[in-house]
Amino acid sequence: MTALDLDPPRLPAAGTWTAFRLGLFGSWRNGVVTLATVAGLVWIVPPLLRWLVIDATWSGTAAQCRAHDGACWAFIAAKLRFILLAFYPAELQWRPVLACLLMLGLLAATAMPRFWRRELAIAWPGVIALCWVLMAGLPGLLEPVASNQWGGLPVTLIIWAACFASALPLAVLLALARRSDMGGLRLLSIGYIELMRGIPMVAVLYVAMLILPLALPAGQSMDKILRAMIMIALFWAAYLAEVVRGGLQAVPDGQREAAATLGLGYWRIMQLIVLPQALRVVIPGLVNQAIGFLLATSLLAVIGIFDLLNAAKASAADPAWLGFYDEAYLFVAAIYFIFGYGGSRYSLWLERRLSRERRN
């Protein structure tokens, strides 16, 4: 008997159509699920398509929309500026638009690995501060605008970016403290992380609105958006700390021990050897957390901050366009989907790229 006789027979590779057919009807269970799915789509898609497109009103007035059974996309055209920018003064709306472009440009640069340098870390607080100045104004240079007039997409992007950028350094410190040999510091870190992860974000927002002002000295106040940002950053840091801790555990202890034998101190070891590897490993996880945090900013509506969702809800309460909530929510859902789906695809691309670089 030769070695060839011992090899198992090789089956011909299945084509794309064969694999597709086997996936749908490879067994009677697959066939039942496929047929049930097709029946559900036939029942749902035609009336939904008719409401969304065929019977929809694309231009006109609210009365013309109510005369038809389809969606009123004329409402979106009429209220688009309000949904995106809320109550910001019309003659100054170039400022929130510019702030959105700056934030999107910063996010695009951050997504490209070739820009992962020290300058990018410096650009984050600089761009966020510039966006805040554009929104709030600067006496003598830009007309001041009160934060209760802010709203829409700029508020969502600025709060999300500022809170995430603030939470990440704190998360690194919490993760290091949780792995520390100092028992008291480790217990404090564990207690903070588990406390924050054990309460809902809505409760944190109510603390920012109701409890945090009581902690300020008498006669002093803090802007509502700033209070919300502080508490959200502290809340998100607990979740990011666990992601970073997973990256720290992925770095072999031998590398830290080898660096210690060379005379490097703890912080130099963390800075030069451990953290660069740990953060590189968990970048896909951080991206996924960032997507979830962006979607969670919709909870700002419960405390009266006119983020994108709350601005859309308020637009449908206009007496001239009263009741078109479905269209408002669908439009906002599409915006969140673009960010969420784009971020998820980017995360998959980045994970493949980093895996390829590690193999090479």
Rank of each mutant, 00 (worst) to 15 (best):
G31Y: 03
L48C: 08
R29H: 09
A36H: 04
A19H: 08
V33Y: 06
A39H: 07
N30H: 12
N30C: 10
L24A: 08
V38W: 10
P46W: 01
L41C: 14
R21G: 02
P47A: 03
N30Q: 13
W43D: 10
N30G: 13
F20T: 09
W43E: 06
L41E: 05
A39Q: 06
R29I: 12
L49F: 14
A39K: 07
P46M: 02
V33E: 05
P46F: 02
S27R: 02
L48H: 06
R50A: 10
A36K: 00
P47I: 01
L22V: 06
V33H: 07
A36E: 05
W51R: 04
L24Y: 00
L35C: 10
F25W: 06
W28Q: 12
R29N: 09
A39N: 05
S27V: 04
T37L: 14
V42W: 07
W51C: 00
V32E: 04
V45L: 14
P47Q: 02
G23C: 04
I44Y: 15
R29A: 14
S27K: 06
P47D: 00
L22P: 01
L35V: 14
F20Y: 09
V32N: 03
V45I: 15
G31D: 03
V42G: 09
L41T: 04
T34E: 00
L22F: 11
R29M: 11
L49S: 13
L41H: 05
P46L: 02
R21K: 09
V38G: 12
R21E: 08
I44V: 15
V42E: 08
L48Q: 13
V42T: 11
R29E: 08
G26I: 07
R21W: 09
W28A: 14
G31I: 02
A19M: 10
A36L: 15
R29G: 10
V33C: 09
L48W: 14
V42P: 02
T37Y: 10
I44D: 12
V32P: 01
A39F: 10
G31K: 04
W43K: 10
F20K: 05
S27L: 02
G26C: 03
L22W: 09
L41R: 06
I44L: 15
V33Q: 08
A19R: 14
T37Q: 10
F20C: 07
L35A: 13
V32L: 13
L22K: 14
G40Y: 06
A39E: 04
L22N: 14
L35I: 13
R50H: 08
N30V: 05
V32D: 02
V33G: 03
P47L: 02
F25H: 01
F25Q: 00
T34L: 01
A36V: 09
P46Y: 03
I44E: 11
W43L: 15
G26D: 04
G31F: 02
W43A: 15
F20N: 03
G40H: 06
R50K: 07
S27D: 03
W51Q: 01
L41W: 12
G23W: 06
W51F: 12
T37C: 14
